[in-house]
Amino acid sequence: MSSTKGKNLYFNDKSMDYVTFGKGKQPLVIIPGLGDGLQTVKGKAQLFSLSYRLLAKRYKVYVFSRINELRQGYTTRDMAADVAEAMETLNLDAAYVMGISQGGMIAQWLAVDFPENVQKLILAVTTAKPSQLARERIEHWQKLSQSGNFKHLMLDIAQHSYTQKSYQKWRFLYNIMGRLGRIKDKKRIAIQSQSCLDHDSLEVIKRIHCPTLVLGALEDDVIGVNGSKELAKAISGCQLLILKHSGHALYEENKAFQEAVCGFLN
């Protein structure tokens, strides 16, 4: 029996939303991407357990949001320290850790600063330092989010995150979501996107020594596939897998993604 729960965590005057699901014993921590700046994982436990069906069969999965009290100048490294504190609060000594996009930036710091917390590391569609392409995308989303144009923001994210084929399929849904939704907290998304722009772990990731898999997407139109390749080059003994027919949202688009993760973790 797998119980799916959404919860709140409190530590050191901070609070964090997280969800947990899955039938396995071994903990797998997932750190989501920049979308977390628009909405935390609150209320999404069911959705995640469906999206990550394959992982839910094998692991006890924890998905952590950023803390609710983000302040100006908060970095991806600060966010990693929060994840480490959250893990400690839940008595998760060591776990498999998967970071996706901005979550991958945070996961890099987690593995550098808190190596004892990370048994194996998966870095999906992420980079050690944003390329020109990534900077343009993030700066554009920053502008759209600050102007409050949620519909344009959602459609732009979808357009660049999915392959053309998938985008046609998802566009309708994103259009509706964009019309119904609104940006709850402009400051939160601004701080998170800024932390991506400032992220630079190139000098330190050579200190990552746990088994690591870098997963890239051939058609990644946000980070760019080279971001994944450079990252893999900088981490010693790291495995690199580039998935074809996949865009930046490869974790949603590609069944091969979860299979690759399971293969690596086993």
Score class of each variant (00 low, 15 high):
A94F: 02
H248P: 03
A80T: 04
C238M: 05
V214T: 04
W109D: 03
T4A: 11
Q102I: 03
Q164F: 10
E230T: 11
E203A: 15
N266C: 04
G6W: 05
Q132S: 14
K25D: 15
L50D: 10
R182Q: 14
L92Y: 13
S49R: 09
A124V: 07
K151V: 10
I189A: 02
Q132P: 08
L215N: 04
K7W: 04
I183D: 01
R71H: 14
N91H: 13
V214G: 00
L197P: 11
D200E: 06
L240M: 05
K187Q: 15
L173V: 11
G181R: 02
I223V: 15
M98Q: 11
Y10P: 00
S161E: 07
A128I: 05
R182L: 07
Q239S: 12
M16I: 15
Q108I: 08
V222C: 09
G33F: 06
E85S: 14
H248F: 04
R179C: 15
M154G: 05
K229E: 14
V204T: 08
K206A: 11
V63G: 03
Y174V: 00
Q119M: 12
D17T: 00
E203Y: 06
I176P: 01
A190C: 07
T127G: 01
D82Q: 05
L55M: 14
D221H: 08
